[in-house]
Simulated scan of single mutants.
Amino acid sequence: MSTNRIGIEESKAQGLADQLNELLAHYQIFYMNVRGYHWNIKGDKFFELHTKFEELYTDLLLKVDEIAERILTLGYRPIHAYSEYMNLSRIPERTNVTDGHQCVKEILDGLSVLIKLERDILEASGEASDEGTNSLMSDYITEQEKTAWMYSSFLGE
């Protein structure tokens, strides 16, 4: 059994890198969607949502970098072409959305997809004894579950 430079079995590291690249693609599309919501939001909740969307996209951009760096740490290359992101992501590209409630619903849909992918990676990283990836995913899930609860509460759900 061959291992990479951080002691993870090579085949498991490759699988994790593939999963992380898929997650990266989802994050990039989600990030651009949230950025668009921030730019285009209108209505009586403008100030509140404009600020919340900026907080969210700022956090997403940080996570994009962390995911890419984790892929590199595992010994692989993060994808970096928007065409690849579009091919891999199940989060659809959203354009010209101005209604706050629709934006929040679409954010919740995106978070659901991300959390599912992160749980899958969490399971795989546990099996690979990859504590670095495991910790990252655990932190993301905890934070995003709370975010989902808060956005759901905003909608009165």
Rank of each mutant, 00 (worst) to 15 (best):
T98F: 00
H26T: 02
E66C: 02
N40P: 03
P78K: 04
G36D: 09
S89R: 04
S89W: 03
M86F: 12
P92C: 01
L88I: 01
S89L: 05
G100N: 01
E55F: 03
Y31W: 04
N21K: 12
A17S: 15
L60H: 05
N33S: 01
F46N: 06
L60W: 06
L72H: 01
A25V: 06
T73G: 02
H38P: 04
L60C: 06
L24K: 13
E69I: 05
R70G: 01
H26W: 04
L61I: 09
K42H: 09
Y37M: 04
N40V: 01
I67L: 04
A25P: 03
A68C: 10
V64P: 04
K42I: 05
R35K: 15
T98V: 08
L56V: 14
L62M: 11
Q28G: 03
D44K: 07
A25M: 08
K52E: 13
L20M: 15
Y31K: 10
E54T: 12
L88Y: 02
I67P: 06
K63R: 14
L74Q: 14
F47G: 08
Y82S: 06
E55G: 13
V97I: 15
G43Q: 07
H26P: 06
D65A: 06
F47W: 12
L72N: 09
Y31S: 01
S83T: 14
A25I: 09
R94L: 00
D65Q: 05
T98E: 10
G100W: 00
Q28C: 04
D99V: 02
H101L: 10
E69Y: 06
L72D: 02
Y31I: 00
R77E: 10
H26Q: 03
R70L: 07
M86Y: 07
Y31H: 13
R77P: 03
